[in-house]
């Protein structure tokens, strides 16, 4: 049976799409799933760096589309999980090098050999976004608790609904309880109420995410990272497991005192 194709999108840039793609890819691989991550951000490729696979790329997605290599050759195998693959974006080309049909063909082919295909969508709502979401069975919308990011997420959800594309679920990323407490950040309930789609996970702000991304070792691999745990939980929910949501809304005074983070 063909695997599930999931596109990670957001509208706004810089909210953590690539971070989410890398971490969910690893989280699913940890669970023993066969995963293929596709970087659809042609011209601005990043996923390879975040997964620490940059120096292993031989062929990229455009090479395959243009018939310069076979499908398997365009896949880079992860150094930690033999059943996790990544297909790199082409850095020297732009998004017009890919059509909706091309991306659909690549995603379907990847689904033949995977349990999950994760597509890292470019920011924006233009052509890049459109080909990235076209083959999806599910779209994960990443947003931050910021007015601009939520506004753009709303726009993207509207486009998906209007064109009857895949259902969407929400990842609320970079959530900081202490800022919400000081009313400096939108609280999760407000965001969920406005966007009116199902929530699949809240990822707390975690300084470890930055270093991890730079070193090609995403936080999903870090036992002690709260963000890593949140991503692993989302991975489990994607496999159909019923994982209760952590009450990370408001830490009590005692919890803060003893630093349960």
């Amino acid at each position: 049976m063909a695997g599930k194709i999931i596109t990670i999108s957001s509208g706004k840039g810089g909210v953590g799409k690539t971070t989410a793609t890398a971490n969910l890819g690893l989280s699913l691989a940890i669970l023993g799933k066969r995963v293929t991550c596709i970087d659809a951000d042609i011209g601005l490729r990043n996923l390879d760096v975040m997964l620490g696979l940059e120096n292993r790329i031989v062929y990229d997605i455009i090479n395959f589309i243009e018939g310069r290599c076979r499908f398997r050759q365009a896949l880079v195998r992860d150094k930690r999980f033999p059943e996790l693959y990544m297909m790199a974006a082409a850095q020297t080309r732009d998004k017009n090098s890919i059509t909706v049909e091309d991306m659909t063909k690549v995603a379907r082919e990847a689904a033949e050999i995977s349990d999950f295909v994760l597509i890292d969508s470019p920011a924006g709502i233009e052509h890049g976004f459109r080909y990235a979401v076209a083959p999806a069975d599910l779209v994960l919308i990443v947003t931050n608790p910021e007015v601009t990011a939520v506004r753009d997420a709303d726009r993207v959800i509207g486009l998906l609904e209007a064109e009857e594309l895949a259902p969407a679920q929400l990842i609320l990323n970079r959530y900081k309880p202490e800022l919400v407490r000081r009313n400096e950040m939108l609280d999760p309930d407000t965001v969920i109420d406005l966007l009116a789609i199902d929530l699949i996970g809240i990822v707390p702000e975690d300084d470890k995410v930055f270093g991890a991304g730079n070193q090609g070792r995403p936080v999903a691999l870090d036992e002690h990272s709260r963000a890593g745990k949140a991503f692993r939980n989302i991975g489990r929910r994607l496999t159909g497991e019923d994982v209760p949501f952590e009450a990370l809304r408001k830490q009590t005074f005692i919890q803060r005192l003893f630093g349960s983070r």
């Binding site: 007015v147 506004r151 709303d154 726009r155 959800i157 509207g158 609904e161 209007a162 406005l194």
Partner: peptide, 26 residues
Amino acid sequence: QQTLRSGQSIHYAGNVTLIGDVNPGA
């Protein structure tokens, strides 16, 4: 009966009743 999302617009010559929210940008 829907959520009217950012970027979406309804233009209609008569009266409009919407059950749902009109989000910012709509």
